[in-house]
Measured scan of single mutants.
Amino acid sequence: MTVLPKDIPGDSLKVTVGTANGKPGDTVTVPVTFADVAKMKNVGTCNFYLGYDASLLEVVSVDAGPIVKNAAVNFSSSASNGTISFLFLDNTITDELITADGVFANIKFKLKSVTAKTTTPVTFKDGGAFGDGTMSKIASVTKTNGSVTIDP
């Protein structure tokens, strides 16, 4: 049996954390987006972790974005102690894959008090994996961190 590389060099799934701005007490939304989904033969499963400074940001909610089908079954998240974990699994293993680019999740943060303008990162942590529509590992994932700026 011969195994051929399935990824064209330079191609990767792009996962990007967005940015937001606000004043202390505001609730802002930071999107997590996927790009080049079709090039990577869709997404059938993924789990990953984001870190944030809990002294500056309070997670209000984490909701599935419009590219997630049947989110009540296929999407899960949790947030505590400065870490947000995400889990997606197409429970049907074929019919509810992520097949389009767009917003995977929206994180709502309540901004805490600061004395001066502060930009705090929302960054990928170690761990996690992504699988394509056949549940094979997506070897190349380009992750881009985001941030939230609090301006009193």
Rank of each mutant, 00 (worst) to 15 (best):
L56N: 08
V122A: 05
P121S: 08
G25W: 09
V43W: 02
S61C: 07
S147G: 06
K69Y: 10
V43T: 10
S55H: 13
L13S: 07
V32S: 10
N70C: 14
T119H: 07
D151I: 15
I98K: 05
K6F: 13
V15H: 06
P24W: 14
V17R: 00
I107W: 00
T144W: 01
N106G: 03
F75C: 05
E58I: 14
D63G: 09
N81A: 15
M40T: 12
K137G: 00
T16P: 12
K143W: 04
S136M: 05
L89C: 03
I150L: 14
S78P: 10
F130K: 00
V17E: 08
E96N: 00
K23C: 14
V103T: 05
F34Q: 07
K143S: 02
D151Q: 14
K108W: 02
N42T: 11
V68Y: 07
K14Q: 13
F130I: 04
K6Q: 11
Y52A: 08
K117V: 04
E58S: 10
I98V: 04
S140P: 10
T16R: 12
V30H: 12
N81F: 15
I107R: 01
S85Y: 05
T118N: 06
N106V: 06
F130V: 02
G25P: 06
G127D: 04
I84S: 03
D132M: 00
V43C: 10
M135P: 00
A105S: 09
K137M: 00
T142L: 08
G51I: 12
G18M: 12
T119S: 09
T149Y: 15
T119A: 13
L89Q: 00
T83A: 09
I8D: 10
A116T: 08
L56T: 08
M40N: 15
A79F: 15
P121V: 05
Y49N: 01
P66W: 15
K137Y: 02
K69T: 10
C46L: 13
I98L: 05
F104D: 01
F109T: 02
M135Y: 15
K39M: 08
K112N: 03
K143I: 01
K108F: 05
K41W: 07
D101W: 00
L89I: 03
T92F: 00
L57A: 08
K112L: 03
G22Y: 08
G65D: 10
K69D: 13
I8M: 09
S136K: 03
S85A: 14
V28D: 07
L4R: 11
T119Q: 10
D95S: 05
F75Y: 05
L56D: 12
G82D: 15
D7E: 14
K41F: 14
A100G: 09
A116F: 05
E58P: 03
N106T: 06
P66I: 11
A100S: 09
V114S: 07
K23S: 11
D53I: 14
F130R: 02
T45P: 01
I67P: 13
K23H: 09
L57I: 12
I138G: 03
I93S: 02
K6C: 14
T19D: 13
I98M: 08
V68H: 10
K6M: 14
L87D: 01
P31H: 11
T123S: 07
S77T: 12
A116G: 06
L97D: 01
V73M: 06
G131A: 02
G146K: 06
A139G: 07
T123D: 06
D53A: 10
T33Q: 09
F130A: 03
N70L: 04
A72F: 13
F109W: 08
V68T: 10
G127V: 03
T94M: 01
K117P: 04
K69S: 11
F75L: 12
V37G: 10
G44F: 02
S113D: 07
D53E: 07
I84W: 05
D126T: 15
A129G: 04
T149N: 14
T94Q: 01
G127R: 15
F109N: 02
T94P: 04
T45L: 09
N81M: 15
G51P: 14
D90Q: 00
A20I: 11
V62H: 08
T2I: 11
K39H: 11
A116R: 09
L56H: 13
N145H: 03
S113Q: 05
N74Q: 00
D36N: 14
L89T: 00
K143C: 00
A71D: 12
D53K: 10
D7P: 11
I93G: 00
D11Y: 12
A100R: 07
F109L: 05
G10A: 11
V141L: 06
